[in-house]
Amino acid sequence: MKIPSLNPEVGSMVRVYGSHVNDLNDFYLYSSWSHHKLLQLDQQLAEAYSQSSSYNIYLFLFKINIISFIDRSSTTASEEFNIGDYCAYQSENEVWYRGLIRERDSNGNAIVFKIDYGDVQHIPIRLLRPLEEWMFEVPRLAIHCSLADLVKPINDWSSEVISQFGSQLTKSFLYGKFINYNKSTDILSVEIKEKESNISFNKVFEPYQKEQSTFPMNDKLVYKHIPMVKLDPNTSYKIHLLYCINPSHFYVYLRKKSKHIISCKTNCKKLENVFHQYHHQWSIKQLL
């Protein structure tokens, strides 16, 4: 059973609240409804799992690092968790979270994605609990977003820009207009503004994108001698961003051609080494 994402209607504008931020193209928001629902869910999860007294005792022992006994039923339950499974766990601040297991390691830990918040945590598998049936009916409350019309530069957003954007999301009375939904990535592109402001966050951070990704280039001559591959406009392709100049001028290559790209880079590197070798020998001859 899969827990669906909460996707507001494209074109709608709602009040939003900031959650976890990875960068300007990968962050999470709450709508007014999901923000209110999150407070309810926290209480409902706490009530549902508070009946497990053995778990509370185990968590106490874990916190003071003297665990020497694992309840047989807990061990059996934890061994049933696999990558891609949903789970619940209680943090050190005694808040319960719904999660999705992304990875497991040989030390008995799991990387758990908090579906209602957007961040990940490393959790001992023995502390995970299965979700109850009703918990699958509540959609993922954190809305996965990207700032509309901003493409991540090839050298990524700087930590300073990401931090500045995160600070902007803590402001009161933010409104988001959802521009487009990407089904393959499950991400909504959004335009965010403060109440009664005419300037969106998208416009505020647009110069940072251009500063990091713009360089002078005239590629008409290249295309004249090396034609580009023509693609079927009615076919979907898996692509990888190669270089971004601006939202309307960027380069990608097909993932199925990645082996050719790697081979080409390898051959170019060999030619570069040969060139440097002969150039070095030529320089020595000139000195002699």
Rank of each mutant, 00 (worst) to 15 (best):
L241M: 14
Q212P: 02
V204D: 03
T170F: 08
S189G: 06
I199Y: 05
K257W: 12
I162A: 10
C268K: 09
K171R: 08
Q168M: 11
L241N: 10
S263T: 12
S159C: 11
V229I: 05
N267R: 14
L221C: 04
P153G: 08
E206N: 08
F178W: 04
N202T: 01
V190K: 11
I192K: 09
K220P: 02
K220I: 03
V229D: 01
K177S: 03
L174C: 02
K220N: 05
S197L: 07
L221R: 04
P207K: 00
S248H: 08
F250Q: 04
I154C: 15
K256Q: 12
K265I: 14
L174W: 01
C264S: 12
I226E: 00
K224A: 04
S263D: 15
P207S: 01
K210G: 01
N246H: 04
M228A: 03
Y175D: 01
L241K: 10
S258K: 13
K256E: 14
K203H: 05
G176H: 01
K257M: 13
K257I: 05
I226G: 00
Y208T: 04
Y237M: 11
N180Y: 09
F178Q: 00
S213I: 03
P207I: 01
D219K: 00
N180D: 12
I226V: 01
S159Q: 15
E196G: 02
S189L: 10
P216S: 06
Q168N: 06
N180V: 04
V151C: 09
C264R: 10
I261K: 09
K183Q: 15
N246C: 07
H225I: 03
L147F: 09
K171S: 05
K171N: 05
N202S: 05
I199L: 10
P207W: 06
T214N: 10
K256N: 13
K171V: 00
N267T: 11
T235P: 08
D232E: 04
L174Y: 00
V161D: 13
K259A: 14
S197N: 08
C244N: 10
E196M: 09
P233Q: 06
G166R: 08
F250H: 07
Y175V: 00
I262C: 12
D186H: 13
L188T: 08
K171L: 07
K195I: 05
N218K: 06
W157E: 07
S258T: 11
Y253F: 15
H260I: 11
I179F: 03
V222K: 01
P233S: 05
G166L: 09
S197P: 02
I192E: 07
S200W: 06
V204M: 10
I239T: 13
I192D: 06
E196I: 02
L147N: 07
I187C: 14
S159A: 15
L174R: 00
S200I: 04
L231V: 01
N180F: 10
S263A: 15
D219S: 02
L221Q: 03
C264P: 06
F178M: 03
N155F: 13
S248P: 00
G166V: 05
V190L: 12
H260M: 13
S213Y: 04
H225N: 02
K238S: 14
Y208S: 11
S167P: 06
Q212E: 12
